[in-house]
Nucleic acid binder design. Structure first.
Lengths: 259, 259
DNA sequence: TTTGGTCGGTTCATTATTTGAACCATCGGT
DNA sequence: ACCGATGGTTCAAATAATGAACCGACCAAA
């Protein structure tokens, strides 16, 4: 493994449950020598990628990240655009909408929007880490991802979150196959009990799925009509987001425009 | 220079004027061998820090940055909090407010807010790169930065932006000294002609200045009364932002609370 | 169609950097 | 005073980074 990879991997140990990590902890977590970790963190600190919180204390992500993110947003305004999309989606459906991006073997929720339509709603916080197999977004993305990626994901052990979490490989492949026909991934209580989610993938300029927009609602409100409406809205907004970030639906997507 | 530093330095060549950079260009810009650049970019690409735009085309900043930034925001909500601050500042003063962070030898504008109060206003786009010596924010930060950092900055060549840009080292040191008394940096047409800016530094938990809030107005509206109001608002909002991100004014700050 | 200049990407022997065990100094709890 | 943490440092040994040359693809001019 290259040194750069090793350094960047250290960043993956930060999460919203563990926003600060000490030198020794980081060495343990990454299974790397303390001296090595120190050097890597020091180099990243000099670039503002990480910073130290107190006097000689733990490390956390640094302000330099913000500049890079702002720059990324300036060229590919995914977040800016998606906020509008999520707002629309949540208004149209009266339910919670969210956006997840792919990062390695996991998905991360980057943004969300609530609807004021109902007192009960699915709540969520940003930057939650979620598994592919248990979410509508994950299935939506897998359906249009490279086969090797799908194999990679499906060869990993699958956590069981609820009594309805699907972990059987064949069943998952079948679900994925279904997404290729409908363009919509679906999870019925797979991650959280009583939550029925639909999701549609969003594509980049290379027709690779990079994120997914999703709508999550309680079982009680997921009538066939509501589901129908959600699916239509998702397709429409996923297309809009895809277009606005300069991407294209792939050939095998059921709602791909005629070439 | 360490490999990690070399890799991260490549990211600094991206700017909003040059959001995409080809392999050969990057090699030229960084003065590094093409093979090396390729390996570094590849490793960063695998981590989502950069991505390639088309089929075998240029590189740009990747979506992985967004996740890290969201995580940073979750632990130290600088941007989220600052947006509110900038809004307030711009409402209170009727002028354009903005926030800049330190990154190496430069400042970068991370966020801004316009006021609807006047038809003419100072306009700006985010992620602009600005020099320390020519801006109110730069002087505000230098006044409370480590001496070695100030020496570093002042030993660099200083660009002349307008007829009123101050480049004389002694004059700059004098301005910086003045900031230590008032808590406010000032630039009268130093970066843009006809723009009078005031700025106040914002501090982190170690009492180190990490960014600055500023108000920029046309000469024509900068009456003594307006300036007085702006200064008061800046101090108040810089303190608020400092507190909200868990920082403290240093001992030598004129508005430091009694310990 | 040929030529010449790019481009992104790859190879491999040489070289310089990374690595990790052991070692400090310091801190906080017992 | 002790113990076991912590963050940080050192230096010989091992490993990974490096760069000149090379490849095929592409594009524009001849």
């Amino acid at each position: 493994m290259g040194t750069v990879t090793k350094a960047l991997n250290l960043l993956n140990f930060f999460s919203h449950d563990r926003p600060e990590i000490g030198l020794s902890d980081m060495a343990r977590l990454s299974g790397t020598n303390k001296a090595t970790v120190y050097r890597l963190l020091s180099e990243m600190q000099a670039q503002g990628i990480v910073e130290q919180v107190g006097n000689g204390r733990a490390y956390r992500l640094g302000p330099g990240i913000l500049r890079l993110a702002a720059l990324r947003e300036a060229s590919v305004p995914l977040l800016e655009v998606s906020r509008g999309i999520l707002r629309t989606l949540s208004d149209q459906t009266g339910e919670t909408a969210h956006l997840s991006i792919v990062r390695g073997q996991k998905l991360f929720v980057l943004a969300h929007a609530y609807s004021p339509a109902h007192a009960t709603k699915v709540t969520m916080e940003d930057v939650e880490e979620v598994a592919f197999h248990a979410t509508a977004s994950g299935l939506a993305i897998l359906a249009f991802a490279e086969n090797s990626f799908v194999q990679d994901i499906l060869s990993q052990p699958r956590e069981v979150y609820t009594a309805r979490t699907v972990t059987n490989k064949d069943a998952l492949l079948e679900s994925i196959e279904a997404v290729r026909d409908t363009g919509i991934g679906e999870s019925v209580g797979g991650l959280e009990a009583e939550v029925h989610s639909h999701a549609a993938p969003v594509f980049d300029a290379n027709r690779v799925p990079i994120c997914a927009v999703a709508v999550a609602a309680p079982f009680s409100r997921m009538t066939p009509e509501a589901a129908q409406n959600i699916r239509a809205c998702l397709i429409e907004n996923a297309r809009s987001l895809t277009e606005q970030i300069g991407g294209f639906f792939p050939e095998n997507h059921p709602y791909a425009r005629a070439a």
